[in-house]
């Protein structure tokens, strides 16, 4: 397993946000975590990237314990996180945002090459290179957030609701990009409320309900599951 999360619990003060959650991410796969509002998806993802302290369980990445590391050290290990709501740096240019994603890297030439790759993948970002990030549309900001994460040259990409608030065409575009970067060998954890999209993209899926693991299985199996169809796919 590339990443393994075992029996994790996270509390906000006295509130128990997630309990006994286990997630395994095999190398090269897309794993999705679906669930309704407040189910604990974001909390799970933030625990993975060191943004939240866990109160039980352990997380290993490439066989190494990472659950005690602060967020900025987790990135150094090869995990990039595209946070909920994109969280680009609004008063920095598109290019500055992207280069900030490469903050920890020292390989100057490879950084330039990767920047070129990001610009190839997202031609809109090249056009807007010197524009302030806050002046971009929602879809462009999502692309910038993904581009910024790719600039750290991660081995695992965590994405929190990349489709949120975007028009269907843009969602389709983002979905294609997720497939492309995964095809290039990058493993992905995709958190989504849009279960249809998530189950279509993913190899394996976890369903969270009010902080608990409700179900898991191969994505196509869950897609056919009665409960999932009724609760998350509106079928």
């Amino acid at each position: 397993m590339l990443l393994e999360m075992k029996n994790i619990a996270v509390n906000y003060g006295k509130i128990n946000a997630i309990r006994n959650i286990s997630v395994a991410v095999p190398e090269g796969k897309i794993v999705t975590i679906i669930g309704g509002n407040g189910a604990g998806k974001t909390t799970t993802l933030r625990a993975m990237s060191g943004m939240l302290p866990i109160t039980a369980g352990e997380i290993t990445f490439e066989g190494k314990r990472i659950d005690h590391l602060p967020a900025h050290k987790v990135v150094a290990n090869g995990i990039a996180h595209v946070p909920e709501g994109r969280r680009i740096f609004p008063d920095m240019t598109v290019e500055e945002n992207l280069r900030t994603g490469a903050f920890l890297r020292k390989d100057k030439e490879a950084i330039e090459a990767d920047l070129e790759d990001v610009f190839k993948r997202f031609p809109r970002l090249r056009e807007r290179r010197t524009q302030m990030a806050k002046t971009m549309s929602g879809g462009e900001q999502q692309m910038l957030a993904i581009g910024r994460a790719l600039m750290s040259k991660p081995r695992l990409l965590l994405m929190d609701e990349p489709s949120m608030g975007l028009a269907p065409v843009i969602v389709e575009e983002i979905a294609q990009i997720v497939e492309e970067i995964n095809a290039n060998g990058l493993s992905v954890v995709l958190v989504e409320q849009n279960a249809e999209l998530a189950l279509e993209l993913a190899d394996y899926a976890y369903v969270l309900e009010t902080g608990n693991a409700a179900m898991e299985g191969p994505a196509d199996e869950l897609h056919g599951n009665e409960h999932v169809r009724a609760a998350y796919l509106g079928l």
């Binding site: 990237s49 943004m51 680009i88 740096f89 008063d91 900030t100």
Partner: peptide, 24 residues
Amino acid sequence: TKFGWALRASAQDPEAAALQGISI
């Protein structure tokens, strides 16, 4: 400079900055 960007990033969104590997 890179550290200048890190400072601006931390001022604009400290959490997102930490996610880029910047120590707040």
